Amino acid sequence: MENEFLWLKNDLDFVLDRIRKNIPVFYNKVPGAASHHLIYEATPNNYWTSSFWIGMLFLAKEITQTNEFDEVISVQMKSFQERLENKVELETHDIGFLYSLSAVADYKVNGTKTSRDLIVQAADCLMVRFNEKAGIIQAWGNLDDLNENGRMIIDGLMNLPLLYKASELTGNDVYKKAAIRHAKQTQKYIIRENNTTYHTYFFDRRTGEGVEGSTAQGYSDDSCWARGQAWGIYGFTLSYLHSGDYTFLESAQGLADYYISRLPVDNVAYWDLIFQEGSQQERDSSAAAISICGLLELAKQLPLSNSNRNRYEEAAIKISKSLSELYTTKGISEANGLLKHGVYDKNSNKGVDESVIWGDYYYLESLVRLSRSWNMYW
């Protein structure tokens, strides 16, 4: 590794050391969604964020090329099997997050046959949430919940790879068709003309007509929630990769261009892109980590002749270096997370200026992407 990337090796060493220290605490549990004073509490596997810990364990296994993480991975995988069998808190589109980073990762890394079956079972569970008329997967809540009925959110793009994988494994394109329709509706309704994004969009489930865009975790309905924009960069790129629809890659570029244009001096976004230098608002290091992964994959998928390739790679590296220098918990001995200055939900004052577990996962994924060729779990 070149000297200029010595920081990358040091960061990987830091992450692996922290993961090893965390295994006894989270052996048969998972870290909570957000830390409290930079310390995650151990919680049961019953939330949308539960798979980010096992995702980090799989990445650690791949980095080290050892069997030292196999025992805890096995315990965690059993938990995900039981969760699906018992339908524990699965009234969410985040079944995609949960089983991409568990079952898909296990199948790709270890070739486990039972995880192949688990992928398809989880995809079937996710397909229950697909509304044919609206062409969307309902994001949250029971399908009869009138407050959530017909809601899609930009985060949903990251749940679609589970459906693409199920079609690949079974030869049944019903999963892929649903995923593409959902991505198309996201493209049509959530992206605004100026390449900003709504967080959520409502549809009339009876007629399938789009009704209105709004926010749940952004500053306002017409602002641009930073993490949502980052999900969009990565998610549209993944839908291009799995579908071959080049318009998805064009959408990802538009979102990337706007995101980069709103970055402050240290290249780590405020929690909503409406804010700029001097606003005194919190940054969201988790949005930064997601954006690195999205920008790197976007650059990888663009044609060699596209001049944006280098620009997106350079932006990703700048954000990475800033996280490394200013946003990790290195030197904070009591912390058990990886990144500080994350924001879960500013509007409800939940996980504000803390470690958030998806930020930690994508931070590690970004380091892996920068250090080697990687067969991603998405």
Rank of each mutant, 00 (worst) to 15 (best):
D272E: 10
Y240P: 01
R192F: 05
G278E: 09
Y189G: 04
C293Y: 05
N194G: 04
K300V: 00
Q187D: 13
D173K: 15
A226N: 03
Q185K: 15
A289D: 05
H182W: 10
Y234V: 10
G278V: 08
I274Y: 10
S251T: 15
F203Q: 00
A226L: 06
G235C: 08
V211Q: 09
W225A: 00
I233R: 01
L249M: 11
A216E: 12
D266T: 07
I180Y: 04
E282L: 12
P303F: 04
Y258Q: 05
N267P: 00
K300C: 02
D272M: 07
G213I: 05
A287G: 09
L249P: 05
Y259V: 06
E297T: 09
G235T: 10
W225Q: 01
A288M: 08
F236M: 12
D284C: 09
Q280K: 15
S286M: 11
L298M: 07
E212K: 15
W231H: 08
S261R: 10
V268A: 03
G208K: 11
N172D: 15
Y201L: 01
Q187T: 08
Y201K: 00
I290T: 06
Q253F: 01
N308T: 02
L296K: 06
Y234A: 10
L238V: 12
G294N: 02
W225K: 02
L302F: 04
K300R: 13
G213A: 10
I191T: 07
G213E: 08
E250P: 07
T237E: 06
W225R: 04
D204S: 14
P264A: 07
A216Q: 14
A226Q: 00
Y219C: 09
L238W: 02
L273H: 06
S239A: 14
Q253S: 12
R283E: 04
V268I: 15
K176F: 02
P303E: 04
W231S: 07
T247N: 11
R227I: 09
Q280F: 13
Y270M: 09
Q301K: 12
A288K: 03
L255K: 00
